[in-house]
C-alpha cells in the first residue's frame, strides 16, 4: 500500500502542486489539507505516515520566515506532532517548511526537545532573496533517512532567509557530532563544502543546507528537491542532452523515493 503523506497548505504556502507530484511519482499517496481543516481536528494527522511542510511564503515571511505559521502550529498541534514523531513517522520540510520547522523547534530536535527553537534561519549574507542552482553534498554519516546513498546533487535555491545560525558554538558542535547535518552547500568541482558565494548562497554556518533530528526521520532543507523532478528542469539540460548525460528523471525525486522506501520497509 502506498504510504499516505499529509501536505499542509494555506496562508501563503505555495509549493503544493509540485510537492504533491513529487510524492506521487515516488509511490506515495499525498493529500493536500488546509491548515484550518487540520487545526479543526489535529488528530487526523495520525491517519498519515508522513507529513510535509512545503515551501512558500507563509504569512508573507513577515516577522521572520515561518514565525507566524510556526506559532499557530505549536499553539494548536504540539501534542499531536510529538506523538507523530514518537510513532516513528516522517516529517519533511522544504524552504519555508524548513523555516517553520526550525522556528517550531522540530529541528534539530536534540534530546527529545522538539518544541524549543534552538537555531535561526537568518537573512542571507548577500542581503536579498536569491534563485539559482547550487550543488548539495550529502553526508554519509548522517542518520537522515531521506538522504541515504546520495553524494552530490544539483538543486535550485529560492530564499531570502536561509543562513543557519547560532551564537552557541557548543550546540553547533553537538549538532555536527550527532550527524544532524545531512547536507551542505558544496563546490561541484571538488565536492567539498564551501562558504563561498554563490556556491554557498547564504553564508550558512558550516555550509549547512539542511538539518535532521538525531533519529533521521525529521528533516528539513533550504534547496528544493521538488523543483527537480524532470530532467528538463536542470539549467543545462540542453547541454546534457547533447552529451548524452541527461538523466532519466530529475535528481530531486530521489529524496522522496528514499522516504517512501523507508516507509514501505517499516
Amino acid at each position: 500500500m502506498n504510504p499516505k503523506i499529509l501536505i499542509i497548505t494555506g496562508y501563503g504556502l505555495n509549493c503544493e502542486a509540485e510537492s504533491h507530484h513529487a510524492w506521487t511519482l515516488a509511490g506515495a499517496a499525498p493529500e493536500l489539507v488546509h491548515l484550518n481543516d487540520l487545526i479543526e481536528r489535529p488528530a487526523r494527522l495520525h491517519d498519515y505516515a508522513g507529513l510535509m511542510f512545503i515551501g512558500g511564503f507563509s504569512y508573507g515571511d513577515h516577522m521572520g520566515s515561518g514565525l507566524a505559521f510556526g506559532a499557530r502550529v505549536r499553539h494548536h498541534m504540539q501534542a499531536d506532532l510529538a506523538r507523530f514523531i514518537a510513532d516513528g513517522k516522517l516529517i519533511l520540510g522544504v524552504c519555508n517548511g524548513f523555516q517553520i520547522m526550525t522556528k517550531l523547534g522540530l529541528l534539530p530536535g536534540l534530546d527529545g526537545d522538539y518544541f524549543t527553537q534552538k537555531v535561526a534561519l537568518m537573512h542571507n549574507d548577500c542581503g536579498a532573496f536569491q534563485n539559482f542552482w547550487v550543488t548539495l553534498r550529502f553526508e554519509e554519516k548522517s542518520p537522515c533517512v531521506f538522504t541515504r546513498n546520495l553524494d552530490l546533487m544539483p538543486l535550485p535555491i529560492r530564499h531570502g532567509e536561509g543562513k543557519v545560525f547560532t551564537l552557541d558554538h557548543a550546540l553547533l558542535e553537538r549538532i555536527e557530532e550527532l550527524g544532524c547535518v545531512p547536507c551542505r552547500y558544496a563546490d561541484p568541482a571538488t565536492g567539498a563544502a564551501t562558504d563561498k558565494f554563490p556556491l554557498n548562497p547564504n553564508g550558512s554556518l558550516n555550509a549547512i543546507a539542511g538539518l535532521c533530528d538525531p533519529t533521521g526521520r525529521v528533516f528539513g532543507l533550504m534547496p528544493h528537491p521538488e523543483a527537480y523532478l524532470f530532467p528538463e528542469n536542470h539549467p543545462q539540460w540542453d547541454l546534457q542532452k547533447l552529451r548524452g548525460t541527461l538523466p532519466a528523471q530529475g535528481a530531486g525525486l530521489k529524496l522522496f523515493q528514499n522516504a517512501v522506501a523507508f516507509l514501505k520497509a517499516t
Partner: peptide, 12 residues
C-alpha cells in the same frame, strides 16, 4: 536573480 523563477517546478 531576486525573482523566483522556479516555483511550480515547470520551467524548461
Amino acid at each position: 536573480r531576486q525573482y523566483d523563477g522556479e516555483v511550480k517546478g515547470l520551467s524548461v
